[in-house]
């Protein structure tokens, strides 16, 4: 689904001493099927933005459109449930939302709420267990018997079971060990392509934003600081550092190679190995302009 923000403001507790403007005058447009990364340091308004995507919040000014749904401050939309069916949100530490006696029931909870029939739910459960890489035998177990990583997968399965068109991920890899993090991101990347999803990833990992996203939106103090292709946005090291963000390691090292050794290589998504080969060729090329 195509998603756009038009001059959106969101204010928490307006007209009180605790008033707080979380986002201001935010505009952007995302085409259907895009993998979007939203980055910005804590308090930049990232989670306020994503809560607009399924109508948990409605803007205090401006307009948010998600496909045909429009969120404006004037009127509440009636078919909010329909919107939430189409936009799945995986919150931070999603394992905290598990509550049923068995994993099967917990996964079925979402589809049931959205009115899917028993038959369809059964099929979905099998499918999503495969997607999140959990063995079917676990279905009858209590979610609280699982390991931390498995619990998270079960919770994600519960969101996927609704079969959303838009998937919103709020730091889905927080707290996992390196292998767990990589497996999880690979899983979302696969789903993004196989299900032709529109994906929003909120992340602190510039490496993930660079590796998986087509488009990156950088937020600072509730406003859009920059946006564009990750490989272009992350070249703007100075500006990003100003808003307390780092750039991916690979780009950082290329900058340093240029600065210290006078060799300029550009990043175009090459693997570490290819980069090593390019470096070797450039270093051994005998250019002695020092």
């Amino acid at each position: 689904m195509e998603i756009s923000f038009k001059n959106v403001d969101y204010t928490y507790q307006p007209n009180t001493p605790f008033e707080h403007k979380a986002i201001r005058n935010l505009s952007f447009k995302v085409a259907s099927g895009t993998f979007v990364a939203i980055v910005g340091h804590t308090g930049s308004g990232k989670s306020t933005v994503i809560q607009h995507l399924n109508g948990l919040l409605t803007p205090t000014y401006g307009e948010v459109s998600i496909g045909d749904y429009k969120l404006t401050p004037e009127k509440k939309i009636k078919n909010i449930k329909d919107l939430r069916k189409r936009v799945g949100v995986v919150f931070q530490y999603p394992e905290h939302q598990l509550f049923e006696e068995t994993i099967e029931k917990d996964i079925a909870f979402g589809p049931k709420n959205f009115g899917a029939n028993e038959e369809a739910i059964k099929e979905r459960i099998i499918e999503v267990m495969q997607s999140v890489n959990l063995p079917e035998q676990l279905l009858t177990r209590s979610p609280f018997d699982l390991s931390g990583g498995q619990m998270r997968r079960a919770a994600i399965a519960g969101v996927l079971a609704v079969d959303p068109e838009v998937l919103v991920l709020d730091e889905p890899t927080a707290g996992l060990d390196p292998r767990g993090q990589r497996d999880m991101m690979e899983m979302f990347y696969r789903l993004h392509h196989s299900k032709k999803l529109t994906t929003f990833l909120v992340t602190h990992s510039m490496e993930d934003a660079l590796e998986y996203a087509d488009h990156v939106i950088v937020l600072d103090k509730g406003t859009k600081f920059m946006e564009g292709k990750p490989s272009e946005v992350f070249l703007r090291q100075k500006e990003l550092n100003e808003v307390q963000l780092d750039i991916p390691e690979v780009i950082k090292i290329l900058f340093k190679v240029k600065e210290k050794l006078g060799i300029s290589l550009s990043y175009k998504g090459q693997s570490t190995y290819d980069l090593a080969c390019e470096l070797k060729a450039a270093l051994g090329g005998g250019s002695t302009n020092e």
Partner: peptide, 16 residues
Amino acid sequence: QETEKISKAQASRGVD
């Protein structure tokens, strides 16, 4: 904060 977070997560799963 926790209550708000969980109720938002469940609202996203279709709880009214």
